[in-house]
Each structure stands twice: as structure tokens, then as C-alpha cells.
Write a protein that binds this DNA or RNA. Structure first.
Length: 417
DNA sequence: CCTCCACCGGAACGTGAGGAGT
DNA sequence: ACTCCTCACGTTCCGGTGGAGG
């Protein structure tokens, strides 16, 4: 048994408890810490807007803007939690609150249903609101009735509202319009909305009627800079890791620097830190070193590549495979024409429909946008104008991923030999 | 300087699947 | 059960174009 000292040691660690992590949940995106550094301004703004609800006055609607990982969601959660707690402490009637992620809860009905369950609205016969089956109007009036049974204030946080409008401009606007208009139909109660958007151009897509009510107040979340990221990381490290696991500032600085490159995305930084910790843990280490941070970055990168390739439609996979096959055969410069010919060959062997070159041209552009390949339009003079294509990720990676697809790997064996 | 290749990329249209409304 | 819409995915058609070679 002593032949495996490393494994032995590793299991010991588990017996003793967590070697690396004290509380790894503190690094997850849903975690709301006790303090939110560098967002005092935004918290203050939102707090002062929501404040009147403690006196029973309806707060204005708010729109929060900012890129991913700038703390919009946490701040909203945090302020709302505080507000409700404060109300309870002072034995004031606490406002209702609902937190809706619009990317997941994407239809009018589902949003309304979520609000109903949040305030405990029931069907006339006392049963829960069903997942489906009711006319949207009915669930809407149920919500109104329940809400209006007493003078209530309800704060609705619509996280990632932009996805609502992006998915369906009309329907998205309808949902928002329906919610904002509801105030006019309520006798005693009021709804106020906090919209959270990653997309700064979101406003342009909104119906002006919706925008005028929804965007009464705006709060901007700027990206964290490297110094701020470092502060956040320090705070979370203290909660999530055991003392001494991350001893020097080098690790934190590196994580901060890497994340700052990604437009100051704090979520990314915490993710990186957690992955680094997990990798170290798996290796039975006691400390997280900079090497683990680098490894974690590669790991995450690889992970997202695998994910995107896996979820690609078959036709796109075939195109990507064509590029890969050409690159693998030692070609330095790949042009659309060759790529298309190879694609046709692959599609035939896989008994896929063979799409036109026009369509493939679009698929190539899509792969470019996903970052799997790079393309540039070049002119070869006499020999026409075309796109020069090359793989944006290592051949090895793509190869091993595509091999996992049984349909492709068969073709690959024939074609590449 | 002009030509003309080999493709780019916009526009309009066809089709089938899936939802909403009635 | 029915129609009507919308959407994603493709196709057809076509005007546009940077620059090597004449």
C-alpha cells in the first residue's frame, strides 16, 4: 500500500477535512458576500432609489448596465436582501421581491408565474399555479388580485433583460410593457422593476414607451480594474481558502492580471481561482501556486472550446473538420474554395446534405466569430479574391474533440490516411 | 492602366418546425 | 383542431472588388 504515497497522502487530507478549501462556494457566481468592495457608489444609488419603499412609497424603476462580471447581479441581490432585512428589523411590512433570470425564465407566462409563486398567489381553488395551461391573461389577473389584496410594494429584479428582447423583440417588449403598465391597474400596490443588462445597446432595442418607464433611473457598472480585482480576490480568498494555501501575492496578482485582460470580469477571476484550487487539490497539494493558476486558465479555455465544438451543428462540424484536415495535411494557406471542396468530400462520406458554397461561406464566418478559426479576406490578384482561413486553436485539440464524434472519426480515418 | 479571377456578402425567397391565438 | 406567425436554415441570384498579370 505504501507504494502510493501520494494517493495515501491525498486521502489523508480528505479525512482531515478540506485541505485547500474552507468554503469553495464563496467562489461561485451566486455567492453574495458580506461586503461588496468597490461598488459603494452603485449600492448607494440603488439603495436611495429603493429606500422610499420602506415608507410605503413606490420606488422608481431602475436599469443597470455593465459588462459581465462587473457585479450587477450581486449588488442587486445584496441591496434587496438588506432592504428586506431592515424592514423586518423595524417591523415594517417588507416589500415583496422576486429575482427572475430572463435568460432562463424567458416567456411572459413563466415570468408571471414566477412572480405569483413568489408572493404566494394561489389558484382560486387553493392549488399552486400550474406550469402551463392557463391563458396568460388569467395568471396576470391572479397576480394583480393577490398583490392588491393589501397595500404591497413588489420589487422585481429582471436579470439579463436584454436576452428577453433579443430572443423576440416584440414579445420581449410586450412582457416589459405588461409589467410596467401593471402599476396603472393596481389600486393599492405598486411594482417596481430593476432591469439588469449586459448589453449597453439594449436601450436601442426597447420600445420607447417601455424605455420611458423602465429607464427612469440608470446605474452604470464599470469594469473592475486590476487593483480592484485584486481587492476582491483577497477578500474572497480569506473566506474560501484555508489559511496559508495562498500565501504570496503573486498568485492573486496573476489571477487579477489575467482577468483584467478579460475586461475586468470578476466572475472570470473567481472561476479561475476556484479551478486553480481544485487542480491543486486533485494533485494533493497544500498550496496553490502560480503554475496552478496558469494550468487553470488552460483548463478553462480548453473546456470552453470543447463545449462550443460539441454543441456545433453537424454541418458546421463538417466545415471545421475540413479546415482541420487541410491544416493537418500540412497546408499553410487555406482558401474558401479548397475548404469547400474538402467539405463536399466529407459531407458525401458522412451522407450529409451538401450545402452550397454560399451557405458554407456563412458557416465559415460563424466559426470565425466563435473564435475557432481566423479568417481574413485577401486578394490573389489574377487568381481572385477569397478568404484565408486558419485554425485559431491547436490542431491537437480540435483533432481530439472531433475524434470523439463517431460519425466524424470514421470519415477522419479514411480521409487522413 | 485595365482586366478579370474567385470569391465576398447583400437581398429576396422557399421550407419545415414549433408556438400563439381562437 | 385549426389557422396564422415567426424563425432558423438554406438556396438562388447578383452586384461588388483588390490586385497580379497583361
Amino acid at each position: 500500500m505504501s507504494k502510493q504515497p501520494k494517493l495515501d497522502k491525498l486521502f489523508d487530507k480528505f479525512i482531515q477535512g478540506q485541505a485547500i478549501f474552507k468554503d469553495r462556494n464563496a467562489l461561485r457566481p451566486t455567492y453574495v458576500p458580506d461586503e461588496l468592495p468597490f461598488r459603494e457608489e452603485q449600492m448607494g444609488r440603488i439603495g436611495s432609489i429603493l429606500g422610499p419603499s420602506l415608507r410605503g412609497a413606490p420606488p422608481s424603476n431602475i436599469l443597470c448596465y455593465g459588462k459581465t462580471g462587473t457585479g450587477k447581479t450581486v449588488v442587486a441581490r445584496y441591496v434587496l436582501n438588506m432592504l428586506i432585512e431592515k424592514a423586518k428589523q423595524s417591523s415594517i411590512r417588507a416589500p415583496f421581491s422576486a429575482f427572475v433570470n430572463c435568460r432562463i425564465v424567458g416567456t411572459n407566462y413563466r415570468v408571471l408565474r414566477k412572480l405569483c409563486t413568489e408572493i404566494g398567489a394561489k389558484m382560486p381553488d387553493g392549488s399552486e399555479v400550474p406550469f402551463t395551461g392557463l391563458p396568460t391573461d388569467e395568471i396576470r389577473s391572479m397576480l394583480k388580485k393577490e398583490l392588491d389584496s393589501e397595500p404591497n410594494i413588489m420589487v422585481v429584479v429582471l436579470d439579463e433583460v436584454d436576452s428577453l428582447v433579443k430572443r423576440d423583440v416584440n414579445q420581449g417588449n410586450d412582457i416589459l410593457y405588461g409589467l410596467t403598465r401593471m402599476n396603472g391597474e393596481l389600486e393599492r400596490s405598486r411594482i417596481s422593476i430593476i432591469g439588469i443588462s449586459n448589453d449597453l445597446k439594449f436601450k436601442e432595442m426597447l420600445d420607447p414607451r417601455v424605455l420611458s418607464t423602465l429607464g427612469e433611473e440608470e446605474v452604470i457598472f464599470s469594469p473592475y480594474n486590476a487593483v480592484e480585482l485584486k481587492g476582491i480576490l483577497k477578500q474572497r480568498v480569506a473566506i474560501s481558502f484555508n489559511p496559508g494555501v495562498i500565501e504570496d501575492d503573486g498568485v492573486i496578482n496573476l489571477v487579477g492580471a489575467l482577468a483584467a485582460q478579460e475586461h475586468g470580469d470578476a466572475r472570470r477571476a473567481l472561476d479561475l481561482l476556484r479551478t486553480a484550487g481544485e487542480l491543486a487539490e486533485r494533485n494533493g497539494e497544500e498550496k496553490v501556486t502560480q503554475e496552478y493558476v496558469r494550468a487553470a486558465q488552460k483548463f478553462i479555455e480548453r473546456d470552453t472550446i470543447i463545449e462550443t465544438v460539441k454543441t456545433l451543428p453537424m454541418q458546421s462540424k463538417a466545415v471545421l473538420f475540413a479546415v482541420y484536415a487541410l491544416a493537418d495535411s500540412g497546408k499553410k494557406k487555406i482558401f474558401t474554395g479548397e475548404c469547400y471542396n474538402t467539405y463536399v468530400e466529407i459531407a458525401k462520406r458522412m451522407s450529409l446534405d451538401t450545402l452550397t458554397q454560399r451557405r458554407i461561406s456563412d458557416l465559415i464566418s460563424e466559426l470565425d466569430m466563435l473564435g475557432l478559426i481566423n479568417t481574413t479576406v485577401v486578394s490573389k490578384g489574377r487568381y481572385g479574391r477569397t478568404k484565408k482561413i486558419r485554425l485559431a486553436v491547436s490542431k491537437k485539440q480540435i483533432g481530439s474533440i472531433l475524434d470523439e464524434d463517431t460519425r466524424l472519426s470514421k470519415v477522419a480515418r479514411d480521409l487522413l490516411s
